[in-house]
Nucleic acid binder design. Structure first.
Length: 766
RNA sequence: GCCGAAGUGGCGGAAUGGUAGACGCGGCGGACUUAAAAUCCGCUGUCCGCAAGGGCGUGUGAGUUCGAAUCUCACCUUCGGCACCA
């Protein structure tokens, strides 16, 4: 209606565990189960009147789509943005699958799909190197996204600036010394306060650095750490356990010998997996030092507070704080101290400034059959991991796999799929049986919508340049660090592969809310609280249901489903029907006395004002208030029905504008009414959805009379009807003449008159 | 614990410094009808009052302002995110 070309495609994210599990439960191949479901959803979406471009439909489980996942995977592999390595990973014991870090939720570390607590396992897995773009992902140039989403992503990426510092292991009776332990710290200024070191129990240097006398104790601790559950290990209020390795390191700034410990509060996966412990200035180190009687030495203090007793770590930065007890740097401000120490270490080759991120690489392999096969083979000869050549893509999922009754991945036992030959040397080879995380599918699908059948590449560059980035994206906040982060990573990676031009996929993001099940929980089949629109659509019509979904809450808010109020939408549309087709009110009992509308100009003005406001509301996604305004207009027209006013041109224009304004949200009934209006008149019929958006007449939207609120001491006391544009002095004079105001002012002293022209007058009295 | 969002009638919600409660649901009353349904009209925050009118009122308490649901501070509650990140 605004003359833009709009591309509004639809598709089905059809791979994944829910489909696979449901297929198992129903004894079907997941493909058959999925396609049957898609058929149902297509019908349901059409019944709601969604105006998708079905010619561009994508089904991600179709080989024509997933072959390009494989093709992109191979390009990322070439660029070292995809890799395989052994790592401690999150494993969901119920789904029997590994999960990406983003897919493990909450303090109890539960699987995002099934809610089971995950466990850590050391497994060899495939990763995408999202960390390569960590810094760029922190920038959001020229995109209009809700601030909370950006905050969540920023926190998730967790950039922190500091220094890497090398501690050298000291020689002693059992140990020649000389090994380097690298640590990361954000507080280089506290280096003089480092009184011990802590390595993660899994740190590779532990075995080498353990003194023979400590061997047994260290082994026992490492073993316990390995078997401890994730939750136990991560709960922050747990006692800080650890054991000494019996060896020592040299503090690179002052040469002091400090003991080396292992403790499970240091995580292998963050920074370097080792820390310098400064108990005076870090809560965790403080707690650990207290428990194990290690020295606590304060090295930063505000003047005059140096001798205060510490009963906790001193963390907060205070005004004027300076280094104390820090050799030649004593007296320096803390930030200068950090710089000086880092610089000194750099000169000695023992340190440098550094940045660390909380973000981990994206673990994309899944031990399940219903996903995109990862296109590599393991050569049983000499070649190791060999990528499948492009011209052998797609690596197809077999059509006949049997789901093993005991669970697990059927691809591992499918002889036809498993056995192949090495593309490099021709010897026997085994296919990779892991499939890709389904978030891979959703990370680039919108480019594929532009050319879903393109056979010689994933993306039509010319079309992508013309249509992308996506102007308006809609999605839930629950995808903040999942789909929305992965998609930004993909965009940057695909831009570096020169497949697309842009580096951000979605210019404007709107977080629509979710309609929750009764009880306020997310709808899901497993909870059995799914609401099906079919019955409501059959009973009230798609337009009523659509309107109600938009009217019941702000578009961005979550709310539990309740059909209370749906009847209001149905009644509203009935009134629209009545004012459009039966302005004379033949069905009305009889004109209500006193309801006659004499000034049809009022209807005109209301229609034009409504148009102005509704146009604004559409722009701002304020669907609920827009519908309310259309109801007001309809109610005014309803009151004029059956009166002389209803046969006039103003009434006719108002109903015409009403239909046009309503068309985007109630497409079916407005089209029908539009068509009937056209055939009643002489105009040749054209779809209402192809009409230009109407323009309002500024002369009609201008204020013609105001009911000026008059307050006395901020309390509303009167409303004074006035023409607009009256001089301030005259307005005030008229206000003062009002009986009510006189009564209010009687016996009081008028101190001040606040007059906001056109808005109100406030009389301040004493 | 840290970060973020929110708290308004019986219910969903409107109003982002200027008439609190638009619009809808529900409720009450009326018209039409033999009757009911549907439809249409009116009323509906709360307390006092026959009325005119007035008091109170946006989680709680303070503050800024002529004026606060809206801004500031503290607190309470709910929801979402993070979880020893050095």
């Amino acid at each position: 209606m605004h003359g833009h070309n709009v591309f509004f495609p639809i598709g089905f994210d059809a791979f994944g565990l829910p489909a696979e599990n449901a297929a198992i439960a129903n004894g079907m191949h997941p493909r058959d189960w999925t396609l049957a479901n898609i058929e149902g959803m297509r019908r349901q979406l059409r019944s709601m009147g969604n105006t998708f471009d079905w010619s561009a439909e994508i089904v991600t489980s179709d080989p024509d789509f997933y072959r390009w996942n494989q093709w992109i995977f191979l390009r990322l592999l070439e660029q070292d943005l995809a890799y395989r390595r052994m790592a401690p990973v999150d494993w969901c014991p119920r789904d029997q699958v590994v999960l990406a870090r983003e897919q493990v939720e909450g303090p109890e570390r539960r699987c995002w799909r099934c809610g089971t607590q995950v466990i850590k396992r050391d497994l060899e897995q495939w990763f995408f190197r999202t960390t390569a773009y960590a810094d760029e992902l922190l920038r959001y140039p020229d995109i209009t996204w809700p601030a909370p989403i950006r905050v969540m992503q920023t926190n998730w990426i967790g950039r922190s600036e500091g220094a890497r510092i090398t501690f050298t292991v000291a020689p002693d009776g059992s140990q020649p010394g000389g090994d380097a332990i690298e640590v990361f710290t954000t507080r280089a200024d506290t280096l003089f306060g480092a009184t011990f070191m802590v390595l993660a129990p899994e740190h590779p240097l532990v075995e080498k650095l353990t003194h023979p006398n400590q061997w047994e104790e260290v082994e026992a601790y490492r073993d316990a750490a390995r078997h401890k559950s994730e939750i136990d290990r991560l709960s922050a209020d747990r006692e800080k356990t650890g054991v000494s390795l019996g060896s020592y390191a040299i503090n690179p700034i002052d040469g002091e010998r400090i003991p080396i410990w292992i403790a499970d509060y240091v995580l292998l996966g963050y920074g370097t997996g080792a820390i310098m412990a400064v108990p005076a200035h870090d809560e965790r180190d403080f707690e650990f030092a207290r428990r194990h009687q290690l020295p606590i030495r304060r090295v930063v203090a505000a003047p005059g507070t140096e001798d205060e007793q510490l009963d906790g770590a001193f963390i907060a930065h205070t005004e004027g704080e300076r280094l104390v007890d820090s050799g030649s740097l004593t007296g320096m401000s803390a930030p200068d101290g950090a710089r000086a120490i880092t610089e000194t270490l750099r000169e000695r080759g023992l340190g440098q400034s550094a940045v660390t991120y909380r973000l981990r690489d994206w673990l994309i392999s899944r031990q399940r059959a219903w996903g995109t096969p990862i296109p590599v083979v393991y050569c049983l000869g000499q070649c190791g991991i060999v990528p499948v050549p492009d011209d052998e893509l797609p690596v197809r999922l077999p059509d006949d796999f049997q789901l093993p009754p005991q669970g697990g991945n059927p691809l591992e036992t499918h002889e036809g799929f498993l056995h192949t030959t090495c593309p490099r040397c021709g010897e026997a080879a085994r296919r990779e049986t892991d499939t890709m995380d389904t978030f891979v599918d959703s990370s680039w699908y919108w480019w594929r919508y532009l050319s879903p059948h393109k056979a010689d590449g994933p993306i039509d560059r010319e079309l992508a340049d013309r249509w992308c980035p996506v102007d308006q994206y809609t999605g839930g906040a629950e995808h903040a660090v999942l789909h929305l982060l992965y998609s930004r990573f993909f965009c940057k990676a695909l831009a570096d592969l020169d497949l697309i031009a842009e580096r951000e996929p979605f210019l404007r993001l709107f977080n629509q809310g979710q309609i929750l099940g009764e009880g306020g929980l997310r709808m899901s089949k497993s909870r059995g609280n799914v609401q099906d629109p079919d019955e409501l659509v059959a009973r009230y019509g798609a337009d009523s249901v659509r309107l109600f979904l938009m009217f019941m809450k702000p578009w961005e808010a979550d709310a539990p489903w309740s059909a209370t109020g749906l009847t209001g939408m149905f009644r509203f549309l009935n009134r629209v029907w009545a004012v459009t087709l039966d302005a004379g009110g033949t069905d009305m009992p009889k004109p209500a006395a006193g309801a006659a509308v004499s000034d049809t100009g009022d209807l005109r003005r209301l229609a034009h004002r409504t148009l102005r406001e509704v146009t604004d509301d559409y722009q701002g996604f304020s669907f609920n208030t827009l519908i309310a305004r259309l109801m007001e207009l309809t109610n005014a027209l309803t009151r004029a029905r059956g009166t002389a006013a209803a046969s006039g041109a103003d009434f006719d224009e108002a109903t015409r504008l009403l239909l046009l304004m309503l068309a985007p949200v109630a497409p079916h009934i407005t089209e029908e009414l539009w068509q009937r209006r056209s055939s009643a008149g002489a105009e040749e019929w054209q779809s209402i959805h192809a009409q230009p958006w109407p323009a309002w007449d500024p002369a009609l939207t201008a204020v013609d009379e105001i009911d000026l609120p008059v307050q006395v001491n901020g309390k509303l006391r009167d409303l004074v009807a006035l023409p607009p544009g009256l001089p301030a002095a005259e307005v005030e004079q008229r206000v003062m003449e009002r009986d009510k105001i006189r009564a209010q002012l009687a016996g009081k002293e008028l101190v001040r008159v606040v007059h906001v022209p056109g808005r109100l007058v406030n009389l301040v009295v004493r």
